[in-house]
Design a binder for these strands. Structure first.
Lengths: 195, 195
DNA sequence: AAACTTTTGGAGCGCGCATTGTAGTACAGC
DNA sequence: GCTGTACTACAATGCGCGCTCCAAAAGTTT
Protein backbone atom coordinates (compact mmCIF):
# COMPACT_ATOMS: atom_id res chain seq x y z
CA UNK A 1 0.00 0.00 0.00
CA UNK A 2 2.81 2.38 0.73
CA UNK A 3 6.51 2.74 0.83
CA UNK A 4 7.98 0.65 3.64
CA UNK A 5 10.00 2.10 6.50
CA UNK A 6 13.64 2.18 5.56
CA UNK A 7 15.54 2.84 8.73
CA UNK A 8 16.19 0.16 11.30
CA UNK A 9 14.31 1.34 14.37
CA UNK A 10 16.39 -0.76 16.69
CA UNK A 11 19.67 0.63 15.35
CA UNK A 12 18.41 4.20 15.46
CA UNK A 13 17.39 3.80 19.09
CA UNK A 14 20.67 2.16 19.95
CA UNK A 15 22.82 4.88 18.38
CA UNK A 16 20.73 7.63 19.98
CA UNK A 17 20.84 5.84 23.31
CA UNK A 18 24.61 5.80 23.14
CA UNK A 19 24.66 9.53 22.40
CA UNK A 20 22.50 10.30 25.45
CA UNK A 21 24.58 7.88 27.45
CA UNK A 22 27.85 9.57 26.53
CA UNK A 23 26.88 13.21 26.78
CA UNK A 24 23.65 13.32 28.73
CA UNK A 25 20.29 14.73 27.80
CA UNK A 26 20.99 18.46 27.75
CA UNK A 27 24.21 18.25 25.77
CA UNK A 28 22.69 15.94 23.15
CA UNK A 29 21.23 18.31 20.57
CA UNK A 30 18.80 17.11 17.95
CA UNK A 31 21.51 17.70 15.36
CA UNK A 32 23.87 15.36 17.19
CA UNK A 33 21.11 12.77 17.36
CA UNK A 34 20.58 13.08 13.59
CA UNK A 35 24.31 12.73 12.97
CA UNK A 36 24.75 9.64 15.08
CA UNK A 37 21.61 7.88 13.89
CA UNK A 38 21.91 8.88 10.25
CA UNK A 39 18.21 9.58 9.96
CA UNK A 40 16.62 12.74 8.67
CA UNK A 41 15.15 15.49 10.79
CA UNK A 42 11.66 14.87 9.45
CA UNK A 43 11.96 11.16 10.05
CA UNK A 44 12.90 11.74 13.65
CA UNK A 45 9.92 13.95 14.38
CA UNK A 46 7.48 11.84 12.37
CA UNK A 47 8.53 8.49 13.73
CA UNK A 48 9.81 9.24 17.23
CA UNK A 49 8.12 12.45 18.35
CA UNK A 50 9.95 15.28 20.07
CA UNK A 51 13.23 15.11 21.94
CA UNK A 52 11.69 14.22 25.29
CA UNK A 53 9.70 11.35 23.83
CA UNK A 54 12.71 10.16 21.88
CA UNK A 55 14.80 10.20 25.03
CA UNK A 56 12.25 8.08 26.84
CA UNK A 57 12.30 5.59 23.97
CA UNK A 58 16.08 5.47 24.32
CA UNK A 59 15.73 4.74 28.01
CA UNK A 60 13.41 1.88 27.04
CA UNK A 61 16.06 0.67 24.63
CA UNK A 62 18.58 0.75 27.44
CA UNK A 63 16.20 -1.22 29.61
CA UNK A 64 15.95 -3.88 26.94
CA UNK A 65 19.70 -4.38 27.22
CA UNK A 66 19.46 -4.47 30.99
CA UNK A 67 16.60 -6.95 30.84
CA UNK A 68 18.57 -9.20 28.53
CA UNK A 69 21.49 -9.16 30.92
CA UNK A 70 19.24 -9.91 33.85
CA UNK A 71 17.59 -12.78 32.01
CA UNK A 72 20.98 -14.28 31.15
CA UNK A 73 22.37 -14.00 34.65
CA UNK A 74 20.05 -13.34 37.57
CA UNK A 75 17.20 -15.32 36.04
CA UNK A 76 19.36 -18.08 34.70
CA UNK A 77 17.97 -21.17 36.43
CA UNK A 78 21.16 -23.10 35.83
CA UNK A 79 22.98 -20.84 38.25
CA UNK A 80 22.78 -20.85 42.02
CA UNK A 81 21.78 -17.58 43.67
CA UNK A 82 25.24 -16.24 44.40
CA UNK A 83 26.59 -17.50 41.11
CA UNK A 84 23.81 -15.65 39.34
CA UNK A 85 24.37 -12.49 41.31
CA UNK A 86 28.09 -12.53 40.64
CA UNK A 87 27.47 -13.16 36.96
CA UNK A 88 25.17 -10.17 36.85
CA UNK A 89 27.63 -7.93 38.64
CA UNK A 90 30.42 -8.95 36.27
CA UNK A 91 28.13 -8.28 33.35
CA UNK A 92 27.39 -4.84 34.73
CA UNK A 93 31.06 -4.04 35.07
CA UNK A 94 31.50 -4.92 31.40
CA UNK A 95 28.48 -2.86 30.49
CA UNK A 96 29.74 0.30 32.13
CA UNK A 97 33.24 0.02 30.72
CA UNK A 98 32.97 -1.74 27.38
CA UNK A 99 32.67 1.32 25.15
CA UNK A 100 35.73 3.15 23.92
CA UNK A 101 35.12 5.67 26.63
CA UNK A 102 33.74 4.54 29.94
CA UNK A 103 30.24 5.88 29.97
CA UNK A 104 28.92 4.52 33.23
CA UNK A 105 25.20 3.82 33.27
CA UNK A 106 22.63 5.81 31.34
CA UNK A 107 20.17 5.60 34.20
CA UNK A 108 22.59 6.76 36.87
CA UNK A 109 23.91 9.49 34.62
CA UNK A 110 20.36 10.68 34.08
CA UNK A 111 19.58 10.63 37.78
CA UNK A 112 22.60 12.86 38.31
CA UNK A 113 21.59 15.29 35.59
CA UNK A 114 18.77 17.73 36.24
CA UNK A 115 16.56 15.39 34.26
CA UNK A 116 15.30 13.76 37.41
CA UNK A 117 13.38 16.87 38.36
CA UNK A 118 11.10 16.28 35.42
CA UNK A 119 8.40 14.17 36.95
CA UNK A 120 7.81 11.75 34.10
CA UNK A 121 11.48 11.14 33.34
CA UNK A 122 12.16 10.56 36.99
CA UNK A 123 9.47 7.91 37.05
CA UNK A 124 10.86 6.10 34.02
CA UNK A 125 14.42 6.14 35.30
CA UNK A 126 13.49 5.06 38.80
CA UNK A 127 11.32 2.29 37.42
CA UNK A 128 14.28 0.84 35.56
CA UNK A 129 16.54 0.95 38.55
CA UNK A 130 13.90 -0.84 40.53
CA UNK A 131 13.92 -3.67 37.97
CA UNK A 132 17.55 -4.33 38.80
CA UNK A 133 16.83 -4.21 42.50
CA UNK A 134 13.98 -6.71 42.17
CA UNK A 135 16.13 -9.09 40.18
CA UNK A 136 18.80 -9.01 42.83
CA UNK A 137 16.27 -9.32 45.61
CA UNK A 138 14.71 -12.47 44.16
CA UNK A 139 18.07 -14.21 44.22
CA UNK A 140 18.98 -12.84 47.61
CA UNK A 141 15.73 -14.19 49.02
CA UNK A 142 16.68 -17.56 47.63
CA UNK A 143 20.15 -17.29 49.14
CA UNK A 144 18.66 -16.17 52.42
CA UNK A 145 16.44 -19.23 52.59
CA UNK A 146 19.47 -21.42 51.99
CA UNK A 147 21.26 -19.58 54.80
CA UNK A 148 23.86 -18.29 52.40
CA UNK A 149 23.61 -14.71 53.54
CA UNK A 150 25.67 -13.38 56.39
CA UNK A 151 23.98 -13.52 59.76
CA UNK A 152 21.86 -10.55 60.70
CA UNK A 153 21.59 -9.29 57.11
CA UNK A 154 18.15 -9.36 55.49
CA UNK A 155 17.73 -10.03 51.81
CA UNK A 156 16.27 -6.54 51.40
CA UNK A 157 19.23 -4.88 53.01
CA UNK A 158 21.67 -6.99 51.05
CA UNK A 159 19.96 -5.82 47.88
CA UNK A 160 20.42 -2.23 48.97
CA UNK A 161 24.08 -2.82 49.68
CA UNK A 162 24.61 -4.32 46.25
CA UNK A 163 22.67 -1.56 44.52
CA UNK A 164 24.74 1.01 46.35
CA UNK A 165 27.91 -0.72 45.35
CA UNK A 166 26.70 -0.88 41.76
CA UNK A 167 25.91 2.81 41.77
CA UNK A 168 29.41 3.39 43.03
CA UNK A 169 31.08 1.49 40.24
CA UNK A 170 28.88 3.21 37.68
CA UNK A 171 30.27 6.51 38.82
CA UNK A 172 33.76 5.17 39.23
CA UNK A 173 33.78 3.83 35.71
CA UNK A 174 32.98 7.28 34.38
CA UNK A 175 35.87 8.52 36.41
CA UNK A 176 38.21 6.22 34.54
CA UNK A 177 38.62 3.14 36.71
CA UNK A 178 39.51 -0.08 34.94
CA UNK A 179 37.23 -3.14 34.82
CA UNK A 180 39.77 -4.95 36.95
CA UNK A 181 39.59 -2.39 39.73
CA UNK A 182 35.82 -2.35 39.61
CA UNK A 183 35.60 -6.11 39.78
CA UNK A 184 37.76 -6.16 42.88
CA UNK A 185 35.48 -3.68 44.57
CA UNK A 186 32.42 -5.73 43.69
CA UNK A 187 34.13 -8.89 44.83
CA UNK A 188 34.89 -7.40 48.21
CA UNK A 189 31.35 -6.18 48.68
CA UNK A 190 29.88 -9.52 47.74
CA UNK A 191 32.21 -11.29 50.14
CA UNK A 192 30.97 -9.08 52.95
CA UNK A 193 27.40 -10.29 52.35
CA UNK A 194 28.01 -13.93 51.55
CA UNK A 195 28.11 -16.77 53.98
CA UNK B 1 39.41 55.42 45.16
CA UNK B 2 36.38 53.97 43.51
CA UNK B 3 33.02 52.49 44.20
CA UNK B 4 33.41 49.36 46.26
CA UNK B 5 32.16 45.98 45.20
CA UNK B 6 28.60 45.56 46.40
CA UNK B 7 27.85 41.90 46.01
CA UNK B 8 29.12 39.34 48.47
CA UNK B 9 31.42 37.14 46.41
CA UNK B 10 31.08 34.26 48.78
CA UNK B 11 27.29 34.34 48.67
CA UNK B 12 27.20 34.68 44.91
CA UNK B 13 29.46 31.66 44.52
CA UNK B 14 27.41 29.70 47.01
CA UNK B 15 24.09 30.40 45.31
CA UNK B 16 25.51 29.66 41.88
CA UNK B 17 27.14 26.51 43.21
CA UNK B 18 23.76 25.33 44.45
CA UNK B 19 22.21 26.02 41.07
CA UNK B 20 24.85 23.94 39.27
CA UNK B 21 24.51 21.32 41.97
CA UNK B 22 20.75 21.04 41.55
CA UNK B 23 20.43 21.16 37.78
CA UNK B 24 23.86 20.47 36.41
CA UNK B 25 26.04 22.54 34.13
CA UNK B 26 24.14 22.37 30.86
CA UNK B 27 20.71 23.08 32.33
CA UNK B 28 21.99 26.04 34.33
CA UNK B 29 21.63 28.95 31.93
CA UNK B 30 23.33 32.27 32.60
CA UNK B 31 19.88 33.75 33.19
CA UNK B 32 19.19 31.21 35.94
CA UNK B 33 22.55 32.01 37.48
CA UNK B 34 21.70 35.71 37.46
CA UNK B 35 18.32 35.00 39.04
CA UNK B 36 19.65 32.86 41.85
CA UNK B 37 22.65 35.04 42.66
CA UNK B 38 20.84 38.34 42.26
CA UNK B 39 23.76 39.91 40.44
CA UNK B 40 23.66 41.64 37.11
CA UNK B 41 24.72 40.22 33.79
CA UNK B 42 27.54 42.74 33.48
CA UNK B 43 28.73 42.03 36.98
CA UNK B 44 28.92 38.33 36.29
CA UNK B 45 31.05 38.72 33.18
CA UNK B 46 33.21 41.48 34.65
CA UNK B 47 33.89 39.79 37.95
CA UNK B 48 33.66 36.08 37.23
CA UNK B 49 34.44 35.63 33.55
CA UNK B 50 32.45 33.37 31.26
CA UNK B 51 30.22 30.48 32.24
CA UNK B 52 33.00 27.89 32.17
CA UNK B 53 35.24 29.95 34.41
CA UNK B 54 32.34 30.71 36.72
CA UNK B 55 31.52 27.03 36.98
CA UNK B 56 35.08 26.23 37.92
CA UNK B 57 34.93 28.90 40.63
CA UNK B 58 31.78 27.24 41.92
CA UNK B 59 33.55 23.91 42.03
CA UNK B 60 36.24 25.62 44.08
CA UNK B 61 33.54 26.94 46.37
CA UNK B 62 32.24 23.41 46.75
CA UNK B 63 35.72 22.22 47.56
CA UNK B 64 35.96 24.78 50.31
CA UNK B 65 32.95 23.19 51.94
CA UNK B 66 34.44 19.76 51.47
CA UNK B 67 37.77 20.88 52.88
CA UNK B 68 36.05 22.33 55.93
CA UNK B 69 34.28 19.06 56.52
CA UNK B 70 37.49 17.11 56.11
CA UNK B 71 39.32 19.40 58.50
CA UNK B 72 36.60 18.98 61.12
CA UNK B 73 36.45 15.22 60.84
CA UNK B 74 39.21 13.32 59.09
CA UNK B 75 41.90 15.75 60.22
CA UNK B 76 40.53 16.21 63.72
CA UNK B 77 43.39 15.07 65.92
CA UNK B 78 41.06 14.45 68.82
CA UNK B 79 39.49 11.57 66.99
CA UNK B 80 40.92 8.12 66.42
CA UNK B 81 41.22 6.96 62.81
CA UNK B 82 37.94 5.06 62.56
CA UNK B 83 36.11 7.65 64.62
CA UNK B 84 37.31 10.31 62.25
CA UNK B 85 36.37 8.30 59.19
CA UNK B 86 32.90 7.61 60.53
CA UNK B 87 32.44 11.26 61.42
CA UNK B 88 33.38 12.20 57.87
CA UNK B 89 31.03 9.68 56.33
CA UNK B 90 28.16 10.90 58.50
CA UNK B 91 28.97 14.45 57.53
CA UNK B 92 28.87 13.45 53.87
CA UNK B 93 25.46 11.84 54.28
CA UNK B 94 24.18 15.11 55.73
CA UNK B 95 25.82 17.05 52.95
CA UNK B 96 24.16 15.09 50.16
CA UNK B 97 20.71 15.15 51.73
CA UNK B 98 20.45 18.36 53.73
CA UNK B 99 18.92 20.58 51.09
CA UNK B 100 15.19 20.68 50.54
CA UNK B 101 15.73 18.39 47.61
CA UNK B 102 18.43 15.78 47.77
CA UNK B 103 21.04 16.96 45.36
CA UNK B 104 23.75 14.38 45.78
CA UNK B 105 27.27 15.65 45.24
CA UNK B 106 28.21 18.37 42.80
CA UNK B 107 31.39 16.56 41.82
CA UNK B 108 29.73 13.22 41.17
CA UNK B 109 26.87 14.88 39.33
CA UNK B 110 29.41 16.62 37.14
CA UNK B 111 31.32 13.45 36.43
CA UNK B 112 28.06 11.90 35.25
CA UNK B 113 27.22 14.82 33.01
CA UNK B 114 29.05 15.24 29.73
CA UNK B 115 31.16 17.82 31.48
CA UNK B 116 33.85 15.30 32.15
CA UNK B 117 34.76 15.17 28.50
CA UNK B 118 36.03 18.70 28.72
CA UNK B 119 39.64 18.21 29.63
CA UNK B 120 40.06 21.05 32.08
CA UNK B 121 36.81 20.48 33.93
CA UNK B 122 37.59 16.82 34.21
CA UNK B 123 40.90 17.70 35.82
CA UNK B 124 39.31 20.03 38.36
CA UNK B 125 36.59 17.58 39.30
CA UNK B 126 38.92 14.63 39.56
CA UNK B 127 41.34 16.66 41.63
CA UNK B 128 38.66 17.37 44.17
CA UNK B 129 37.59 13.77 44.42
CA UNK B 130 41.18 12.84 44.98
CA UNK B 131 41.32 15.20 47.96
CA UNK B 132 38.66 13.12 49.66
CA UNK B 133 40.46 9.94 48.84
CA UNK B 134 43.71 11.24 50.28
CA UNK B 135 42.00 12.31 53.48
CA UNK B 136 40.52 8.88 53.93
CA UNK B 137 43.76 7.19 53.02
CA UNK B 138 45.75 9.07 55.67
CA UNK B 139 43.45 7.81 58.38
CA UNK B 140 43.29 4.32 56.94
CA UNK B 141 47.07 4.15 56.96
CA UNK B 142 46.95 5.08 60.59
CA UNK B 143 44.32 2.44 61.28
CA UNK B 144 46.32 -0.09 59.31
CA UNK B 145 49.40 0.53 61.44
CA UNK B 146 47.31 -0.02 64.55
CA UNK B 147 46.03 -3.26 63.04
CA UNK B 148 42.50 -1.92 63.01
CA UNK B 149 41.83 -2.88 59.41
CA UNK B 150 40.50 -6.28 58.47
CA UNK B 151 43.12 -8.82 57.61
CA UNK B 152 44.22 -8.93 53.99
CA UNK B 153 42.89 -5.48 53.20
CA UNK B 154 45.37 -2.74 52.35
CA UNK B 155 44.77 0.86 53.33
CA UNK B 156 44.69 1.79 49.65
CA UNK B 157 42.04 -0.77 48.84
CA UNK B 158 39.99 0.20 51.88
CA UNK B 159 40.04 3.78 50.63
CA UNK B 160 38.73 2.61 47.27
CA UNK B 161 35.96 0.65 48.94
CA UNK B 162 34.90 3.66 50.96
CA UNK B 163 35.07 5.99 47.96
CA UNK B 164 32.95 3.57 46.01
CA UNK B 165 30.45 3.37 48.80
CA UNK B 166 30.38 7.15 49.02
CA UNK B 167 29.80 7.45 45.29
CA UNK B 168 26.93 5.04 45.73
CA UNK B 169 25.22 7.04 48.43
CA UNK B 170 25.69 10.22 46.43
CA UNK B 171 23.70 8.68 43.64
CA UNK B 172 21.24 7.06 45.99
CA UNK B 173 20.54 10.34 47.70
CA UNK B 174 19.59 11.89 44.38
CA UNK B 175 17.28 8.97 43.91
CA UNK B 176 15.43 9.88 47.08
CA UNK B 177 16.87 7.67 49.81
CA UNK B 178 16.65 9.00 53.33
CA UNK B 179 19.68 9.90 55.47
CA UNK B 180 18.80 7.01 57.73
CA UNK B 181 18.96 4.48 54.92
CA UNK B 182 22.22 5.93 53.66
CA UNK B 183 23.79 5.82 57.09
CA UNK B 184 22.93 2.17 57.45
CA UNK B 185 24.61 1.41 54.14
CA UNK B 186 27.72 3.29 55.19
CA UNK B 187 27.71 1.60 58.56
CA UNK B 188 27.63 -1.81 56.97
CA UNK B 189 30.44 -1.01 54.58
CA UNK B 190 32.61 0.37 57.36
CA UNK B 191 31.96 -2.71 59.46
CA UNK B 192 33.21 -4.88 56.61
CA UNK B 193 36.56 -3.07 56.67
CA UNK B 194 37.05 -2.57 60.36
CA UNK B 195 38.75 -4.91 62.77
C1' DA C 1 33.09 69.53 43.65
C1' DA C 2 35.88 66.65 40.58
C1' DA C 3 37.90 62.37 39.23
C1' DC C 4 37.54 57.70 39.17
C1' DT C 5 35.87 53.16 39.29
C1' DT C 6 32.36 49.81 39.62
C1' DT C 7 27.52 48.62 39.52
C1' DT C 8 23.22 48.63 37.14
C1' DG C 9 19.86 47.72 33.70
C1' DG C 10 19.04 46.93 29.35
C1' DA C 11 19.70 46.68 24.39
C1' DG C 12 21.64 43.97 21.05
C1' DC C 13 24.77 40.45 18.74
C1' DG C 14 25.13 36.19 16.32
C1' DC C 15 24.23 31.62 16.89
C1' DG C 16 22.24 27.30 17.78
C1' DC C 17 18.36 25.34 19.70
C1' DA C 18 13.83 22.42 19.06
C1' DT C 19 10.33 22.30 16.04
C1' DT C 20 7.32 22.82 11.81
C1' DG C 21 6.43 22.96 7.09
C1' DT C 22 7.13 22.29 2.24
C1' DA C 23 8.63 20.64 -1.63
C1' DG C 24 10.27 16.70 -4.51
C1' DT C 25 11.28 11.76 -4.81
C1' DA C 26 11.13 6.68 -4.06
C1' DC C 27 8.55 2.63 -3.37
C1' DA C 28 4.51 -0.25 -2.37
C1' DG C 29 -0.37 -2.04 -3.59
C1' DC C 30 -4.53 -1.19 -6.56
C1' DG D 1 -0.88 4.78 -14.14
C1' DC D 2 -2.78 6.08 -9.87
C1' DT D 3 -2.82 6.53 -5.01
C1' DG D 4 -0.83 6.60 -0.64
C1' DT D 5 2.92 6.51 2.40
C1' DA D 6 7.75 7.37 3.79
C1' DC D 7 11.74 9.13 2.45
C1' DT D 8 15.18 13.41 1.69
C1' DA D 9 16.67 18.08 1.97
C1' DC D 10 16.16 22.38 3.23
C1' DA D 11 13.99 26.69 4.38
C1' DA D 12 11.87 29.02 7.98
C1' DT D 13 10.04 30.04 12.67
C1' DG D 14 10.55 31.69 17.10
C1' DC D 15 13.03 31.35 21.05
C1' DG D 16 16.74 31.20 24.29
C1' DC D 17 21.48 30.76 24.52
C1' DG D 18 26.25 32.90 25.88
C1' DC D 19 28.24 37.02 25.50
C1' DT D 20 29.34 42.14 24.54
C1' DC D 21 28.62 46.82 24.95
C1' DC D 22 26.83 51.19 26.57
C1' DA D 23 24.93 55.05 29.15
C1' DA D 24 23.46 56.23 33.55
C1' DA D 25 23.78 55.93 38.53
C1' DA D 26 26.31 55.21 42.82
C1' DG D 27 29.90 55.21 46.01
C1' DT D 28 34.92 56.41 47.34
C1' DT D 29 38.78 59.08 47.00
C1' DT D 30 41.34 63.50 46.25
Amino acid sequence: MARPVEFDEDKVLTYAMEQFWREGYEASSVQKLLDCTGINRGTLYNSFGDKDTFFKSCIDQYNKVVDTQIAATLENSKLGPWEAIEAYLDETVLNVTNKRRSMGCLLVNSVCESINYDKEMRKVVRGSLSTMRKGLLARLNEAHKNRKVKKGVSAEFAAEVLMNSLHGIRVNSRDGKTPKQLKELIKFNVASLKK
